[in-house]
Design a protein around this nucleic acid. Structure first.
Lengths: 244, 244
DNA sequence: CGGGTATCGTGCAAAATTTCACAAGCGAAG
DNA sequence: CTTCGCTTGTGAAATTTTGCACGATACCCG
């Protein structure tokens, strides 16, 4: 769940040629999962012409406490300037680099049904993520229109993924096929899986998995809603930023 | 984040007409978010002809510790039988009832682009969840093929959602429009939002939000991968069941 | 150039969550 | 009817995560 971080320090801080980077310190996964939100928000601010923000302002915008933001960022080095706040552009870039987003990533997509197609056409993936291979048993031989990629059968996953050096996989096949597909991807060298199938994947310890499960999310939210249709409002609870 | 639970006790335990249900005890949201996994897994087992499981077996299958499963379930009552384990069918039904899944839920869908369409055609939503209204500025006036629903403009959200008594909303519009759509839904009485847009929604305290953000998930996973393309394997970490 | 203000980074405390470990209960077997 | 083995439910401990509070420091303004 955590790992030792390499020296992803922030670049030149005025007086701090080598910022105190807590190298060798393991960062909890829960912190890592928040980093993309920081990147996204800081970039958005930067593009809006905002050059710097305080942790307080950022907190307001993201819905997390300011202390937590400060602590999260501080675990990678000294990103802020006292009295001033954080430089939106610089910190966005630095955190993106920590996440290894300063390069392109080829992704293997398994499943080209409703979900798989939506994923393939998703505008939010590029430029960092690029679908480089598509697999689907039923659509074998067809071509994906926009990229011209040949759709291959599941049996080809392992070899193709290895040939292309792909480390990221997206699983968008039916639940029954998900584990098999995951196994093939892992066998081919994939070390991170985004799983849309409603099953818990069993993978080796050195493979990361994130679940995308809208149905589970809906099913958990109904807990907070009135038990029966037509009922008046209850005394529900809130839920802040949590689930990814 | 938590709430007081009503008396969702388990039905007739042999000698325990009224199982000790910790009524009035607030259940952490993190527990609630795990419940759908239990329901899904137990149902799957039940359908496979497995009538009972121990917490240990369940843990193995789900990738959570047995103690945690026992504690999660025990927070709602006494679901297990010592020496025997949990009855798959019974506990699945009970937890489903706790989540208010023993009724149908109408859902409002905003956005009918790639994601919205995939959501609308998703086989996993029914029978519990039924898309009952669709909104999209650009597709106003058109009809959704399978259900015949008229697509309405965002301005109609509040009134239509109120008219239909809808409490659940799915936001699948571009980031820039998400907050506006969320506001309209909340104004119409929606109290739970599934958000596909890459922004943190600001909602009143009595509204629950869950984020579905595959891009953020990918961006967080790359942290654990080699920084540069073509590099050899690193010393990565694992990640168990966490993000939803 | 010096005082005042804002904001970070962080030790420490608190809260939340998970794990341990075991008494108690249930069912099966003899 | 008693014994034995398995598995729950749960206090208590451990661990993780968050929040508080404040010293330190950078910037701004006069």
């Amino acid at each position: 769940m955590t790992r030792t971080i390499p020296d992803h320090s922030l670049r030149e801080n005025p007086n701090d040629a080598v910022p105190i980077a807590p190298v060798g310190h393991p960062i909890p996964d829960i912190v890592i999962r928040r980093l993309p939100i920081y990147v996204r928000t800081l970039r958005s601010l930067s593009e809006s012409g905002v050059d710097s923000v305080s942790s307080e302002e950022l907190a307001e915008q993201i819905g997390i406490s300011a202390a937590q933001i400060r602590r999260d960022l501080a675990s990678f080095g000294r990103f802020g300037r006292q009295g001033k706040g954080y430089s939106t552009a610089e910190v966005a870039d630095s955190v993106a680099e920590i996440l290894h987003l300063n390069r392109g990533w080829d992704v293997a997509l398994a499943g080209f049904g409703n979900i798989g197609r939506a994923v393939a056409h998703h505008r939010g993936f590029p430029p960092t993520f690029r679908i480089a291979a598509i697999f689907d048993r039923r659509k074998e031989g067809r071509e994906e229109p926009s990229t011209g990629l040949h759709i291959l059968p599941p049996e080809a996953i392992s070899a193709e993924v290895r040939r292309l050096g792909i480390e990221l996989g997206i699983i968008a096949v039916p639940a029954g096929a998900a584990q098999d597909v995951a196994d093939r991807m892992v066998e081919g060298g994939v070390r991170a899986l985004l799983n849309y199938a409603p099953v818990v994947l069993r993978v080796p310890d050195n493979v990361v998995v994130r679940e995308v499960d809208p149905v589970a999310a809906l099913r958990s939210m109904t807990y907070y809603l009135s038990p029966a249709a037509g009922d008046g409002p209850d005394a529900p609870a809130t839920a802040g930023l949590r689930a990814g």
